[in-house]
């Protein structure tokens, strides 16, 4: 599903985002990306979204080489990848419903499809009662649910999350974690960059650890840290 080969991203200012990363994430997998601040987690997510060009290496999504995708192809690539950020990134002038519907409007969805799918995902994330609320009337957890609904409303095969629980209290973080697990159990591949060691330790999923842009550890059913690795 996701195949990264010898990927290196060096920023214009010389900062090393990721270095020589080779990774394969299979369809339906759940992978945590962990590592200290500046280790390259966000950069890894960004190169998957094709927010920037790689300095070296290749990326394949579903067998397709996306390394050199241009302006024309990138929007259609992103429709196959939902994305959730730490800071939710909702539109303050739109209601919950509109924020989610918006993601369908930009594709060629008909209004009938929109009217069918939006309530469906809103009830899946437990926001059906809040569909008329504006983001500033929601708690952080509810805002992140809304962002999650927006990310999956087009039913992408891949969901990328960059510290989705970073702004949430532990209980709410767990709610979001469970939602992500549920989305994953329906077949969506989930990649989640996080600092939340308790979640990582408890979930027993694949853990990819990064340091200075390198992948330094990659274990199935791992924990946030382990004996032979320390940050």
């Amino acid at each position: 599903m996701i195949k990264i080969i010898n990927a290196t991203k060096i920023y214009d200012n010389g900062a090393r985002g990721v270095q020589d990363v080779t990774l394969t994430i299979d369809k339906g997998e759940f992978a945590f990306i962990v590592g200290s601040s500046g280790s390259g987690k966000s950069t890894l997510i960004k190169i998957l979204l094709r927010e920037m060009d790689l300095t070296e290496g290749e990326i394949y999504i579903n067998g397709e080489d996306i390394t050199y995708y241009g302006k024309k192809e990138i929007p259609f690539l992103r429709r196959k990848m939902g994305v959730v950020f730490q800071d939710f990134r909702l539109l303050p002038t739109k209601t919950v419903y509109e924020n989610v519907a918006f993601a369908m409007q930009i594709t060629d969805a008909s209004s009938r499809e929109i009217r069918r799918n939006v309530p469906m995902v809103l009830s899946m994330v437990g926001l059906q009662k809040k569909s008329k609320a504006y983001p500033d009337q929601l708690s952080g957890g509810e805002q992140q649910r809304c962002a999650l609904a927006r990310a999956i409303v087009n039913n992408p095969p891949i969901l990328l999350c960059d510290e989705p629980t970073g702004n949430l209290d532990p209980d709410t973080a767990w709610d979001i974690m469970n939602l992500l697990d549920e989305i994953n159990s329906r077949g969506t591949t989930v990649v989640m960059a996080t600092h939340a060691w308790d979640l990582v330790d408890a979930m027993k999923k694949r853990v990819i650890a990064m340091k200075n842009g390198f992948v330094v550890r990659d274990v199935e059913k791992g924990g946030y840290s382990n004996e032979n690795y320390s940050e």
Partner: peptide, 16 residues
């Protein structure tokens, strides 16, 4: 601007 950034993340084409 915010809205445009988000539109790009969810896959809006430049023409859209």
């Amino acid at each position: 601007r915010n809205e445009i950034v988000i539109m790009k993340y969810v896959g809006a084409t430049d023409w859209f």
